[in-house]
């Protein structure tokens, strides 16, 4: 996965709270292999119900969303749907914990902003797209002409910028893992499955 530091593109708003992973990708699409491309599954039912859905009116790279975005299941397919559609960043007051972890593993920024900032952007953009620029290095973005600071865990910031792969990173610790394993099961022999 390649990293990124700056991004320019269109932002749209999805102001509802609790846009969960079941909405982001309904379960019936999850038997597809990733090679099928998941972008068409993104918010499938909401887009079917609304032919004028902003995801179909604009080619957005940035979402401004309500609180608790990505709550619910651990399905990384929700992130695949966003990324395959072309979304690279979501700004929201809060995110599902597992979703946010999955996002960073796929180069998707989950930028935490205050409730009033989200509400201001939703009101300013009034359902339309707006220009967005993001700089991970400074932790600031410009959306619809507004300069916005956002919170991002420093570890996740580094991962996004460098495009780090965890398995590659862990390989350097393989000796420590081997040593730990031996000591762990020596101290807690009951931790091995009995049969």
């Amino acid at each position: 996965m390649s990293g990124w530091q700056t991004l320019t593109g269109s932002a749209i708003t999805l102001p509802e709270a609790n846009i969960d992973t079941d909405q982001l990708i309904p379960a019936r699409f999850m038997s597809q292999p990733r090679s099928a491309g998941y972008g068409g599954f993104l918010l499938y039912d909401a887009r079917q119900a609304n032919p004028d859905h902003p995801l179909d009116r604009y080619a957005a790279k940035v979402l401004v969303a309500g609180r608790n975005f990505g709550s619910g299941s651990s399905r990384e397919a929700a992130v695949y749907a966003l990324v395959d559609y072309g979304i690279r960043a979501v700004f929201a007051p809060s995110f599902g914990d597992i979703f946010a972890g999955n996002a960073v593993n796929n180069g998707l920024l989950t930028a935490q902003i205050d409730d009033d900032v989200a509400a201001f952007l939703v009101a300013t953009m009034a359902g339309n797209a707006a220009a967005a620029q993001i700089d991970l290095g400074t932790g600031r973005a410009t959306i619809a002409g507004q300069d916005i600071g956002f919170d991002l865990d420093p570890v996740r910031r580094q991962k996004l910028i460098n495009g780090w792969d965890d398995i590659d990173m862990t390989a350097q610790y393989s000796d420590q893992i081997t040593t730990f394993r031996a000591a762990h099961f020596a101290a807690h022999p009951w931790a091995m499955p009995a049969t």
Partner: peptide, 29 residues
């Protein structure tokens, strides 16, 4: 699976993970 939190009822540290993390656990435990 996000409902892995269930197993915490036994005094275990149990939590759900995504597919990239599943891969990491398969590869490194």
């Amino acid at each position: 699976d996000s409902h892995t939190s269930t197993h915490g009822a036994f005094g275990a540290l149990a939590f759900g993970v995504g597919a990239t993390e599943v891969t990491h656990i398969l590869a490194t435990q």
